[in-house]
Nucleic acid binder design. Sequence first.
DNA 1: TGCCAGGCCCTCTTTAGGGCCTT
Length: 206
Amino acid sequence: METVAVIDFETTGLSPALGDRATEIAAVLVQDGQIVDRYESLMNAGVYVSPFIESLTGISNAMVRRAPPAAQVMEAVADFVGDHPLVAHNASFDCRFWDAELQRIDRRRSRAFACSMRLARRLLPRAPSHKLGALAEYADLPATGRHHRALADAELSAHLLLHIEAVIRRRFRIREVSHALLCEIQCAPQRGLDRCVKNLRGGAET
DNA sequence: TGCCAGGCCCTCTTTAGGGCCTT
């Protein structure tokens, strides 16, 4: 598959529309079945980190105050990601913050997000939960560090993506799993998924 | 004062409601 960028945000809350801001971003590049590069940074958006969020993420107000400005970090991570297609776990969340933080520096997203959670719901329906941590345990993914820190979660999402790609190759007898195919599968109906993927591939098998 | 998201997905649905998932 072409190189993809798996990203993860830590934030002050759930909605940029309500004033929540990013406190940390990580992006890892996945190429030829492995992580080949990493970017990680705390960022200072001048916002208050609540005790709940500090307890959840381990990111304190002092850590954010010492971090580089959010605009500087977003410029750097946007350059790092470049034009690679994007992946995130529950991508609707990260996509909202990605777009909102980019808009603040007058930049725009150029590629679509694929969502490892939506893919897991279709391809790993027997998992007891589709939370990132639960899927890591279910699929026996390698440990990557403290849950709810950006780099650890981005790397874990990358390992989950590689696991999902292996499931797709095995189940649908596909040699190369493109980002475009991931986007098609995540939008396909759960029932009739096999028929849908076969139609996408024109019925050709490797 | 109290409350505040948003998209997906399933079902006891479709003129709706509630759980899941992200921080």
